[in-house]
Design a protein around this nucleic acid. Structure first.
Lengths: 236, 236, 236, 236
DNA sequence: CATGAATGAGGGTTCATTCAT
DNA sequence: CATGAATGAACCCTCATTCAT
């Protein structure tokens, strides 16, 4: 071989094998997740799905069980992946805002825009309902964080955290549902954000201002799970 | 109907049989619906359901198919029944209000209170998501009616009907979900209504006033499908 | 119909339906048991078998589960049926003997002869081992009963009941195994019985006398599970 | 083999590698056998086994197939190993007896005692039934050898070799089964041996004498497959 | 109309075995 | 030789639906 021998005298066989194996494993896992997302989006968390997933992913029946032991485990993995991706895309832009109201407006706007680009995402979240999914995905950390900041800063007059949470997540999920049913206008996300801010107790003028700020756009990575599942309709 | 059945000549055999038969049929149908509601509430519209329903209702397998040809038909019937019951309970009280904002506040408040009395109802609606169910149940007619009135009266600054719809239904469903997860305070429904009114563009003070008005209580009929499914926790 | 109407005036519709249904159910159950016996005999209690059983019984997959929920339940039912049949055939003849030694000799002889007629029976018992099956089948009641009588009458010097049980069952099962492997002589069952009696402490001459007594023959019923499973080799 | 490898000229590289390799191979094989015995003991010859074996043995899936091509091959190897071990432990002591009846008594006693020390052994034999295993293990050579000697010496009146075999193996296996189910007394093995001798036609007094002779104890080697599978309960 | 035995498509899960690295 | 990811045949089980009685 041409492998440069160091003083160890041994070729790095085992390491190479290990690395190659891990990469393959990761690729197969990603294929399975990407195949699962659309199915869960269409049929919900309890869908009977393994057949369609393995077919879509192009792996054998048994391979599935090398990765996930149950339907629920798969669903949890998909939800986690979606959550991670969502936060990776949206939160950096949200964090560029300093005012809590601006952050909420930014987050709301971007999520709705994102759902316009990736209907699968919208479907997945809507299927999950305000409960299981949304809570786990959108809420874990970021929404409560911004609510708390808004309350602390006196921006929001609604002080019950759970109520505030419902006032944000409820309309957003309803909007995602609307976006799936009919075509929503360019203005829709901003109006939605403005109304949500008002519901939280932000002054109407301030609400309008925050909601109509231009927050910039997210940049979906090429190998995001969203892109690996479907053709994208680029602009956001 | 108009057939005078008095003590006159012929014994009312045929009619009597017919009437008794119809009543029995109606009772069996009602038993099936009442048995189905908890199952759909727990497991969603696609639940595997027939076995538990016929067992709970105490009828034979085949009998089920004399009433509903498919699972979907059963679900639709349950949803319809739930919707009717909901409207029968809530709408008379809503219509007692004249101001559209008051009507929305009243409806929102009562539905959340109702869900506290009947967790099954909350579960059923939450499972259905903002889509399939809620739209069919809450929305059919009454919510759009009040939105349109509010826009026409200048009470609401949100003029996009669909947006207004999302701003009402979204938080309500989220609140129902919250009510299932944790115990919500006495004040929660009123605060929710107040915030929703603000989100629609109602002046904050007006919103507060409308939301804290005492609308009276619904009176659940003894043989409502809700009562036939579960023990009730009386007060609302 | 020709059904004699009594003063009730109603045809016995429901009763007839019920009876017909029960008969059908019983027939299907019997078909399943008969189909299962050979499979368990060949492959043991843990065999993966449902497919072959339903095919042999000529019923649908789901039908199986209307009768047995698990493999184990089926096995238990087959074992029970075999046990019942065995006792029904053998015990009446055994009970015609009064001396406990004669009873043991009679039982041993007849079971081995029976196994010659019905190799499936032999296989089924041998597969089950001295444990699960044999104990459940041969032992339940009859063998301990005769051991206790023999000990009480002073016929047997072996007084440890469990040891006596092993001394009877062990050789019988070994003999069944032998009968499956090679052709055993006409004399084999009698010699076996004689040796077993000796092992229990019966005087050698008495043992010989008891073992060579002619106990008569069992009469397999036409619709016994054994006959429904295989062609019989008549004489015993 | 005959190549003298002393401190002479060439370094023993190749041979050393070969020897080390063979030792490793032998160790891995032994690990696999030791891992397999308990599984076969618990679940029988057809057990689904490979997963637990490789996990227990700490080798990779593929490695297994470098040693055994099929499940059956593994089972045969385990049975052979068990058989060898059994004979290695028991036969030297048996051969110290000269009278065939003493030999049979000795073998029977020791095997039952051994099974008390090593329940896994008992389970393994009982699972195998009087057929497949037992025959292959206990019988191969030693039992028929002693039977033939006993018949030739006029000790046994039972002259049918197969019958004699059944009269020995049957009760022994039944006793092993009993030993697994309940605690057997110290005396049990001796009584069992005595009864077996009687069944073979040995005079009752002689049977008693032979069975109650003290044959000494086996000395289980530290690295026996039995010891490598389980904690031992020392005394026999 | 009520009954419930029978159906069979549809989906789930295991595990011995192969093979590229 | 060791490794472990991938394979797919062979099972298992559920449940909506039909149909003779």
């Amino acid at each position: 071989m041409m492998v440069p021998r160091t003083s160890s005298g041994q070729p790095p066989r085992a390491d190479h094998r290990t690395r190659v194996g891990q990469e393959r494993r990761e690729r197969t896992r990603a294929k399975l997740l990407a195949a699962a997302l659309p199915v869960f989006a269409k049929h919900g968390a309890d869908a009977a799905i393994i057949d369609s997933i393995i077919q879509q992913a192009g792996v054998a029946r048994g391979t599935f069980y090398n990765y996930f032991r149950t339907n629920d485990e798969l669903f949890a993995a998909v939800a986690q992946e979606v959550s991670n991706e969502l936060i990776r895309l949206v939160d950096p832009i949200v964090l560029a805002q300093t005012d809590p109201a601006a952050r909420v407006a930014c987050g709301v706007t971007l999520v709705v825009k994102l759902a316009r680009c990736y209907p699968l995402l919208a479907e997945f979240i809507v299927r999950g309902g305000p409960g299981a999914i949304a809570a786990g995905i959108l809420a874990a950390g970021v929404v409560p964080r911004d609510i708390a900041a808004g309350v602390a800063a006196g921006r929001f007059t609604v002080t019950n955290q759970r109520l505030a949470f419902d006032l944000i997540l409820g309309p957003v999920i309803a909007a995602l549902h609307t976006a799936l049913t009919e075509t929503i206008s360019e203005q829709y996300p901003r109006d939605l954000a403005e109304s949500i801010l008002r519901s939280l107790g932000v002054e109407p003028e301030a609400a309008r201002k925050f909601a109509n700020h231009d927050f910039g756009a997210f940049v979906p990575s090429e190998d995001s799970i969203f892109n690996r599942c479907q053709p994208k309709n680029a602009a956001n």
